[in-house]
Design a protein around this nucleic acid. Sequence first.
DNA 1: CTTGACTTTGTCCTTGGGTCAAAGTTTTAG
DNA 2: CTAAAACTTTGACCCAAGGACAAAGTCAAG
Lengths: 132, 132
Amino acid sequence: MKVGQAADAAGVTPKAVRLWESKGLLPPAGRTSTGYRIFTDEDVRILRFIRQAKALDLSLEEIGDVLDLQRHGAVTCGKVTALLDAHIERLDRTMTDLKRLRRTLDRARKTARDTRARGQEAVVCHIIENTG
Amino acid sequence: MKVGQAADAAGVTPKAVRLWESKGLLPPAGRTSTGYRIFTDEDVRILRFIRQAKALDLSLEEIGDVLDLQRHGAVTCGKVTALLDAHIERLDRTMTDLKRLRRTLDRARKTARDTRARGQEAVVCHIIENTG
DNA sequence: CTTGACTTTGTCCTTGGGTCAAAGTTTTAG
DNA sequence: CTAAAACTTTGACCCAAGGACAAAGTCAAG
């Protein structure tokens, strides 16, 4: 099948399919005599896999690593678990950062409201200078 | 002072200073007869402001908006409050998404561990396929 | 045979800079 | 004073992960 059909079957865009192929996540697709890419059902399975993995917020590089391991017949759940653990750790760090940011934003907003309540509406607002 | 000194004084890189100037966050810097940019203490204050605002995760565009308002003498805490409110709302949505993702990752990891515990170490790991 | 739908490659755009190159300038050390 | 080191300039290319668009070729249906 051609790129449009393969993309539809996997629930992604043709552009994404070409990008992923160019990044080596898919083996190079076959070509017709006129240059059109030809995809197999196996390719579609890989495309679906990539889509699912992206839903877990894995980067294309991480997904490529897993796919390479699979191709070498070496993908063990232990390896995937390690990958997910590292990913979860990263995510937790991000969320910690965001929580801290959220508190800072709340403080900044409170400062803004207080300043406003004191009727200093027309002066330059120094909220941000005071948060750092 | 020149770009390096200004950058040091503000705690940012020269590259960032040039970028921010090119995006209009800074007024165009003066130049020496040989083309070197000249920055004033006021410029450094603006650079610090941008750095603080970035610490609040505001985009350069948002920061530029605030700076433009300031230049028109029109920055009221009401406007900044509105900007921060919108930003906080966006942040909360992001965190909600991340929490959902975290649960999905936890489930995926549990599946991996369970599969591994059943001694299927050598088979292709189907964790990701089962999470979508 | 023509029209429309599809595909190809290519380019530019996004965010916020990092990195490198070639060339000119300034400063510092000897 | 001069040579080297440090700094600055512009420009170009790079990252993620595609989106949008263009020009040109191809395929299928009427």
